[in-house]
Design a protein around this nucleic acid. Structure first.
Lengths: 168, 168
DNA sequence: ATAAACTTTCATTTATTTTTGAAAGTTTAA
DNA sequence: TTAAACTTTCAAAAATAAATGAAAGTTTAT
């Protein structure tokens, strides 16, 4: 396989993976493209490589910047803007985790807390089960969210490494 | 908030969360409904509670069973089939992780390995960067996949708990 | 102040995903 | 075996999400 083919395959795969995880295809593709570029890329270039419109490129670049995983760069003597991706993978994972937590998990936790604290009718097994199950779910999601949050630093510290090894 | 309202809110929220994570809304809603039901539910019942068609219910129940997180149940003297959800959350998380790993991450890893092992032209910084970055990505995804895989047992063992506490 | 070079916005179009519902299929009881 | 009671399938319709592109908005150089 030659370089161009490999690059294309990577961008396509990353895009497909993105959409399976609730990130739109173009957004994931742009990110993939920037990740494997050794220098900043212009919007024109992105449009050309991915065969997408100006508007699409602009909106998805904006979204990627909102997520904090793509940066604008200015080149001396160039009017155009260039873009680069966060390339440190721990940092990338950490930012994605933080962002999804903020946007999706935190609001869900709020609802879970609300619905799990209703006053269940003592004589209804159905209502008791509901409160019990949603409470457990609240605890579980809270725990998972915290883990995600601490993953990076955990991954970097020695005890983390040890545990990783034990887990094989 | 009274029970019916809480139940509905929970089902809606879980459905929305599902679609943000690449699981279709109805599938997530059916799962939510079954999770908080203290007894098995018939298809008729599901259709009625979620206001969906027979075909939709049937297909999504099938999908949930394929994921191994919903089971069929037969009641003595009843012709109809009833459904229950996996209610143990560690087990649920573990099954979802396994399934997504198998369906999405493993194939992605295969592609990552392919594209990261091309013979980079020694004189091209661009190609060298590509190989370097995709290799790192391969390692990272592999590691993350393994962690996901081991999450449950890790969560259950004492060392895990200790580390969790330290991580706070 | 003007205009060239560029980016963003958003109403409309296009593509993708999900849902429907009726026909086909299956199982069970008599 | 037949028919009632139920489930599955899948082509078509509906709903949703994403992409386009031209007009509006910015910025910079002169």
């Amino acid at each position: 396989m030659e370089f161009k083919e490999a690059k294309n395959k990577f961008v396509q795969t990353w895009g497909a993976l993105g959409s399976q995880w609730g990130i739109n295809k173009t957004m994931a593709q742009i990110h993939a493209l920037l990740m494997v570029s050794n220098e900043a890329v212009s919007m024109e270039n992105i449009m050309d490589e991915l065969q997408i419109s100006r508007g699409n490129a602009s909106m998805n670049l904006r979204a990627l910047m909102d997520w904090g995983i793509v940066y604008k760069e200015y080149k001396a003597g160039e009017r155009r803007e260039f873009f680069t991706a966060e390339k440190d993978l721990d940092e990338l994972a950490s930012k994605i985790a933080r962002e999804r937590s903020k946007r999706e998990i935190k609001p869900a936790l709020k609802i879970l807390k609300e619905v799990s604290t209703i006053e269940a009718n003592e004589s209804s097994a159905e209502e008791k089960h509901f409160v019990d199950q949603t409470s457990k779910l609240y605890d579980f999601v809270l725990k998972a969210d915290n883990m995600l949050d601490k993953m990076t630093e955990f991954n970097e510290n020695w005890l983390g490494r040890l545990v990783l090894k034990i887990m094989k």
